[in-house]
Simulated scan of single mutants.
Amino acid sequence: MWFRNLRFYRFSDEFTLPEDFEAKLNEHLFRACGRQEQSTFGWYSPFGADSEVLSHRLNECYLICARREEKVLPAAVINAELDEKVRQIQDAEGRPVNRKEKQTLKEDLVHQLLPQAFSRFRLSWGYLDLKRQLIVVNESASNKAEDFLGLLRSTLGSLPVQPVGTAEAAEVFMTDWLIGNSLPGAFELGDEAELRSPQQDGGILRCKNEDLTRDDIQAHVDGGKQVTRLGLIWQEQIEFVLETDLALKRVKATDMLMEQQDDLVDPTPDQKLDADFMLISAQVGELYDDLIRAFSSDSSN
């Protein structure tokens, strides 16, 4: 287990978990789709299907996992069936089929085909860091992270969180960092960036596997483009791409970090998960602290 994407949400009020947290999770346990359900979403054990434990605590951090089932009905299949239904009606009754009737026919087809549809499953991971009053969600898309938070909100009854943000636009900071490679001390440049012109019809420059200090890339910044995505390396431990909403994409542990992790001899799945979570919660927590300091108004001092 490793968090490949990081979205940070901060509690707006002092938050503690209820003593019956595990029981509350169990009330919203994942279940398979019924014959006419297109999707279901519920809590799932971090330790897998054979475990009934729905959370894993390490110090003041609580790891939780949700599972989603979605019935897959390819649009091409539905549209082909719909076209055939429309053709049959037109041939039999000699009249055109209007839009409203087509929509009704389509809904009926979905209802008929759902029991035969294949299922797609995916896991969504996150953890609560009560020391930092933070929730970290492993999702690249904000709507998927909001689904995770929505399930947690339904489970707990309320969830006073908001996305972590900055007082000044993040692209202002990242553009300043790229100019002259003047980053806060905990970070160094990676090899990826996206630069956008502030004009609505302006150009976009995307760089991968490049030396971002090159004169031609710096010239685009001098010409007015702003950095909207920036590859960074934190403490030689974690590589990631930072976006303007402070989401971290394509998060990867460096070889240096993995070499520092204690090697377990033939670890059980439970031991492996515990070791991974210990590494993630400790490193991501410190990374978050440095990231917030970097975006403070005096970060360059």
Rank of each mutant, 00 (worst) to 15 (best):
M1L: 03
R4W: 00
F15K: 14
F15E: 10
T16N: 14
E19N: 10
A23D: 15
H28Q: 13
C33V: 03
Q38A: 03
W43F: 14
P46A: 14
E52V: 15
L58E: 07
E60P: 00
Y62R: 06
I64F: 03
A66D: 12
A66N: 15
P74K: 09
A76H: 10
N79S: 10
E81P: 09
L82M: 09
I89A: 12
D91C: 07
K100D: 11
E107G: 12
V110G: 10
H111K: 15
P115F: 05
P115N: 05
R120L: 11
S124G: 15
Y127D: 03
Y127V: 04
I135F: 02
I135S: 03
I135M: 04
A141G: 14
F148P: 13
L149S: 14
G150D: 07
L151F: 08
S154K: 13
T155H: 12
L156E: 08
A167S: 11
E168L: 02
A169G: 09
F173Y: 02
L178T: 08
I179K: 08
I179L: 05
G180A: 06
S182I: 13
P184G: 14
F187Q: 14
L189P: 09
G190P: 03
D191R: 04
R196C: 11
S197E: 07
Q199C: 14
D201P: 15
K208D: 08
A219M: 00
T228I: 03
L230V: 02
G231N: 04
L232I: 08
E236C: 14
Q237W: 06
F240N: 08
T244Y: 05
V251I: 01
M256G: 09
M256Q: 15
L257Y: 08
Q260I: 13
T268E: 08
A275N: 02
D276W: 01
D276C: 01
F277T: 10
I280E: 04
I280D: 01
S281Q: 01
L287E: 01
L287W: 02
Y288H: 03
Y288D: 04
D289A: 02
L291M: 03
A294K: 02
A294P: 04
F295E: 02
